[in-house]
Design a protein around this nucleic acid. Structure first.
Lengths: 131, 131
DNA sequence: CTTACTGTATTAGGTACCTAGTACACAGAG
DNA sequence: CTCTGTGTACTAGGTACCTAATACAGTAAG
């Protein structure tokens, strides 16, 4: 599926939420496809089921996943994508954080950009491999 | 000086630590220059003095700052820069996090790169303005 | 019906972080 | 010396997060 980064200061439930969104955005999870059960994914990620449940619940509220009680959880038929405004805002926020750390460790802009390109394609390839 | 982002999941003391490193990397804080006192910076950032103290202490241990007890805290004469290995590692880690969120919100690589370039120069300009 | 699997809810405990308040030792100015 | 401003240390309280252990309600298969 994907991995949890313990060193990432972001809460685990948020990493899971983002991971699912990523899979859907890359087509590794098609609309209508079933996602792992709360307990299965928790076991896979070495994490508490409650934490996965929290992420699934948020994704369901956001219209990304759809729950069939007693049966399982599935990707919504028409998964909600962030609107342009939200998307740009989130991206800009993340970009500022990244640029700030890049400067703090003494990196030039070119190096920062190179690393982003490399990381982007690496993440894409990683998901394609597991789909 | 710089700003604290409450929405950033990173601890405040870490944001302060990175902020000081950023100022030094950009030359806004020259070697030997005095940094604000714990209480002053805490007041400026609307934060508890203990939190600033924690950041200063870490920076002192890392050889970035130098303390003169009872007098104040100063930028070290030869501020320690992260070695290439650590720098690349930290940058790559940050790049993966950034690329992951960019993909999660449905952004293309080009947009992600554009935002980084924009953010980088914005951060630089922001610090130049206040130095 | 029984069994097994879903998502969901609740309670409890532990850790990290931030805040608040107080106190101490040191250096410089008046 | 007195006063003020340093960094440092300590205790206490609150919140967010993660974990653990149950329990409940719904669905599907045997």
């Amino acid at each position: 599926m994907f991995a949890i980064n313990p060193t990432d200061p972001a809460p685990i439930w948020r990493q899971i939420e983002e991971g699912v969104r990523r899979m859907i955005a890359l087509g590794a999870l098609q609309p209508g496809a079933s996602v792992p059960s709360v307990r299965d994914l928790a076991k896979d990620l070495r994490v508490n089921p409650n934490t996965v449940a929290r992420a699934y619940q948020r994704l369901t509220e956001g219209g990304v996943l759809a729950v069939k009680r007693g049966e399982g959880t599935y990707v919504a038929d028409e998964p909600v994508q962030p609107r342009k405004n939200e998307r740009n805002e989130a991206l800009r926020d993340a970009a500022i954080r990244y640029a700030s750390t890049a400067i703090a460790v003494g990196s030039e802009l070119e190096d920062a950009v190179d690393e982003v390109e490399s990381a982007y394609e690496r993440v894409v390839r990683e998901h394609r491999r597991k789909s």
